[in-house]
Simulated scan of single mutants.
Amino acid sequence: MGTRKTILVATAAAAGITMSSAALAQDIYKSGVGGLYTGVNYTFIDIDAQEDADVGTLSAKVGVQANKYFGAEARAGFGVNDDTVNGTEVKLDNFFGGYATINMANETPVTPYAILGFTRVELEAGSRSDDESDFSYGAGVNVQLARNLSGNLEYMRYYDDRDVTIDGIGLGILVNF
Rank of each mutant, 00 (worst) to 15 (best):
G2E: 08
G2N: 12
I7F: 13
I7S: 02
L8M: 13
V9R: 10
A10V: 07
A10D: 05
A13D: 13
A15C: 00
A15E: 04
I17D: 02
T18N: 11
S20C: 08
S21N: 11
A22L: 14
A25C: 10
D27K: 15
D27Q: 13
Y29P: 00
S31K: 12
S31R: 11
V33P: 01
G35P: 09
G35A: 04
G39N: 09
Y42D: 06
Y42R: 10
Y42N: 07
F44I: 04
I45W: 04
I45G: 03
I47F: 02
D48Q: 10
A49K: 02
A49R: 01
E51P: 02
D52T: 06
D54G: 06
V55Q: 03
V55L: 04
G56I: 07
L58T: 10
V62K: 06
V64L: 11
V64D: 00
A66Q: 05
A66D: 01
N67Q: 01
Y69E: 09
A72R: 01
A74Y: 09
G79D: 00
N81Y: 10
N81D: 14
N81H: 12
N81G: 08
D82P: 01
G87V: 04
G87C: 09
G87R: 03
T88N: 05
T88C: 02
V90H: 08
K91W: 00
N94E: 08
Y99M: 04
N103C: 02
N106E: 01
V110W: 04
T111S: 08
P112Y: 08
P112D: 06
Y113R: 06
A114C: 06
I115M: 09
V121W: 00
E122R: 12
E122V: 09
L123E: 02
G126H: 06
G126I: 05
R128L: 14
R128I: 07
R128M: 12
R128S: 14
S129N: 12
S129C: 01
S129Y: 00
D130H: 07
D131G: 06
E132C: 05
S133C: 05
D134H: 05
F135P: 07
A139H: 01
G140F: 02
G140N: 04
N142K: 15
L145E: 03
L145H: 02
L145T: 03
R147H: 13
N148K: 13
L149G: 05
S150C: 05
N152R: 15
Y155K: 06
Y158G: 07
Y158V: 07
Y159I: 05
R162A: 15
D163R: 10
T165G: 11
I166M: 07
G168R: 10
G168P: 08
G170K: 10
L171E: 03
G172M: 15
G172F: 12
I173S: 04
